[in-house]
Design a protein around this nucleic acid. Structure first.
Lengths: 179, 179
DNA sequence: AGTTTTTAGTTGCAACTTAAAACCTATTAA
DNA sequence: TTAATAGGTTTTAAGTTGCAACTAAAAACT
């Protein structure tokens, strides 16, 4: 059905799970469906009117997302015409990704904070920017990152920090001063 | 050229920047190009062999990403045949999203940690899981989130915490116990 | 200088995917 | 009993993708 589905192997530069993630939620509309689901939408006709997707495409995507274990499909007891779609734990686990993307759009595309605002229900304050963190919670930038090979990482926990074995530093990859 | 580009308005349930983000990086291959760029790839033929994308599609995507301000295109000085593509600050800012997606794939699709491992270059330890955080850095789950309207949020900072005005809680949207 | 190779594309075409509208079937409501 | 609703499927046109072949400019060989 899809061409993407065949590319799972042969990725130069090591094993990466990104293509496998994209295989499942990389399709157009999937994130929009996810967002609607997050907003409490659970029925076919509601997804339809909330998202503005075509009927057949929605049917297809929901089927796929159920197959992928991102959502469950359950006919309603009280009204047997209706079906309820719900996020699974796997689907809920896509939230950080979706929110990161939304925050990026806010910052760089619209420039305007989206409304309503996603908040912490404990203190009712807006949630923070999604960021990369070190194991000790320091916020990391792209320039703070490097790739280290699995094998090397294990050896490194013997305490002898050898800096020359870093696989690749990421300090010089982006533009130095970009808009 | 794209149908998605027309849907920017009329999103039931408030203004959301997700569709505008998807407009720019929601296309197939964009995240893969981003990952390659992160890995230091900057030339056309290298993207081609690293990603396994078709020539014409790659040309099209790079053009679009440059137009969108995610990458820059600059012919090389030393070899005028070559062109260098580099991530802008806007492009680099997509990293948390991409890594969140990759971590999700690791957890739910492959089950295996990807190799090489993305690490903090300061202490050479693997970076942490990307997560949603409160303004005071507590890690948040989906059940800890709620939507609050902009107007209401401003009023709320007067100190009178009215819990009944929460727009919507997100506690009951996912499956209670899902695989 | 002339030929070949490399780099970054473009073009043409077949196969596939999407979108819109019409249609279908099972329930429920009037 | 008829009409409306919910969740699809089918049909068809339009758009997108992927492959292979082609081009044009610059660099490298001979």
């Amino acid at each position: 059905m899809d061409k993407i589905r065949e590319d799972l192997s042969s990725l130069a530069g090591g094993e990466c799970s990104l293509p496998m993630a994209l295989e499942v939620i990389g399709e157009r509309w999937c994130f929009m469906i996810l967002r609607a689901a997050l907003n409490g939408v659970g029925h076919f006709e509601d997804f339809l009117s909330e998202i503005g997707i075509a009927r057949n495409i929605l049917a297809n995507r929901l089927t796929r997302m159920v197959e992928a274990g991102i959502m469950t499909r359950r006919p309603c007891d009280h009204d047997k015409r209706k079906v309820e779609y719900r996020l699974t734990a796997k689907g809920q686990d896509l939230l950080p990704t979706m929110i990161a993307l939304r925050q990026w759009g806010e910052k760089w595309q619209t420039g305007v904070p989206s409304n309503p605002i996603l908040c912490d229900s404990r203190d009712r304050q807006p949630i923070g920017q999604i960021s990369m963190r070190a194991h000790d919670d320091r916020v990391l930038e792209m320039k703070d990152l490097c790739w280290i090979d699995e094998s090397e990482l294990k050896q490194d926990s013997d305490g002898s920090g050898r800096d020359d074995m870093v696989v690749r530093h990421l300090k010089e990859i982006g533009e130095s001063s970009a808009a």
